[in-house]
């Protein structure tokens, strides 16, 4: 059977026309055996370039989104800072004292526009209670770009209108690192520096737990005693709204407007 099968299969041959047709087909399909090379020059380099560009754009956007360019320091007694990206979105919230950390943990303002975030913070129970007690709210906008500073400050002022006594101001970031190094938010660090000029013994740790009202009051008291305006101090303290928890002179009068051109009592404006 082997031979019969072999002999029979041997009779089957590929027709010449079949071979020639196949060769023609191959020539046509491969564009004269050049298909791979002909197809490459047009789109493959462009695709690679487009992919690289896309990658660069994505990395750029990612970096721009997660790079902080501005800081909003909010101090009342909770002290916290919002870091903003160039799109004015909140990319991080950092508490700078125990109350601040508790408040920061309770907030969900990540990636919100700074005004929405500020509204949420001001309407939070902790801050609303402080404002109800006539505590002082200090908001510092820290940005090296003057134009952004102004725009952000205007936005912040719009948010704080109608939220009690608020002091909003803008500054560049020169002392931001020093503030963080001292464990203080930017706004509280500025107040600490004013206080330090009057009382070299004061430490950042002491300031950290004080409310802005207490710090301001202490500054006012020390300034008054330094300049010998004792009478005014006594008179002011009689009009104050509460006793000092920390300080070296009696009275709790409000001396806003002292210390580097800060303007308190914006809500009255």
């Amino acid at each position: 059977m082997n031979d019969a099968l072999k002999e029979a299969f041997g009779q089957i041959r590929a027709e010449q026309a079949l071979k020639e047709d196949t060769l023609s087909y191959l020539y046509k399909q491969t564009n004269g055996y050049q298909r791979a090379r002909a197809a490459v020059p047009y789109y493959r380099p462009l695709l690679s370039l487009a992919a690289c560009l896309l990658l660069v754009v994505c990395l750029g956007l990612w970096r721009a989104w997660f790079t902080p360019v501005s800081v909003i320091s909010i101090d009342i007694n909770p002290s916290l800072e919002l870091e903003l990206n160039r799109f004015d979105r909140v990319i991080s919230v950092e508490g700078y004292n125990e109350d601040g950390q508790t408040l920061a943990d309770s907030l969900s303002v990540q990636f919100l526009n700074y005004q929405d975030a500020l509204e949420e913070i001001l309407s939070s129970d902790t801050v609303a209670d402080c404002l109800a007690r006539q505590e002082l709210l200090s908001i510092a906008v820290v940005d090296d770009d003057t134009q952004r500073q102004e725009a952000l400050l205007a936005g912040v002022q719009a948010c704080t209108a109608g939220h009690g006594q608020a002091h909003c101001y803008a500054a560049d970031g020169a002392e931001l690192e020093d503030a963080h190094h001292a464990g203080l938010s930017y706004g509280k660090y500025q107040a600490y520096l004013e206080l330090l000029a009057l009382d070299p013994e004061i430490t950042p740790q002491q300031v950290q737990t004080m409310t802005m009202r207490e710090i301001r009051q202490l500054i006012a008291d020390l300034s008054a005693s330094d300049s010998g305006i004792q009478e005014e101090n006594i008179e002011t303290s009689q009009q104050g709204s509460g006793p000092l928890e920390q300080g070296n002179s009696p009275g709790s009068g409000h001396h806003y407007g002292q210390g580097g051109g800060h303007h308190y009592g914006r809500s009255a404006e």
Binding site: F9, I12, R13, A14, E15, L18, K19, T22, L23, L26, Y27, T30, Y33, R35, A36, R37
Partner: peptide, 21 residues
């Protein structure tokens, strides 16, 4: 991609076998 010569050689060599299959 293979050359035309390679294609011709393969067809000469294997076309009968492919035809039988």
């Amino acid at each position: 991609m293979r050359s035309e010569e390679e294609a011709r050689r393969a067809i000469d060599q294997y076309s009968d076998m492919v035809r039988r299959l």
